Amino acid sequence: MAEKKESYAQAMEKLENIVSAVEKDELDIDQLSVKLKEAQKLVRFCKDKLYKADEEIKKIMEGEDN
Results as ranks from 00 to 15, higher is better:
M1D: 08
A2N: 01
E3C: 09
K4V: 03
K4G: 01
K5N: 15
K5H: 15
E6Q: 15
S7G: 13
S7T: 15
Y8A: 01
A9M: 07
A11R: 01
E13R: 07
L15V: 08
I18G: 03
V19N: 12
S20F: 14
A21Y: 05
A21S: 15
A21C: 14
D25F: 05
D25W: 02
D25G: 03
L27I: 09
L27Q: 04
I29H: 10
Q31N: 11
L32Q: 13
S33H: 13
V34I: 14
V34G: 10
L36A: 04
K37P: 05
Q40P: 11
K41M: 06
V43E: 03
R44T: 11
F45M: 02
K47I: 00
K47Y: 04
K47D: 01
D48H: 10
D48N: 13
K49F: 09
K49C: 06
Y51N: 04
K52M: 00
K52D: 00
K52E: 10
A53E: 12
E55T: 02
E56H: 12
I57H: 10
K58W: 05
K59C: 07
I60Q: 14
E62S: 08
E62R: 02
E62N: 09
G63M: 06
E64M: 10
D65K: 06
N66F: 09
N66C: 05
N66I: 03
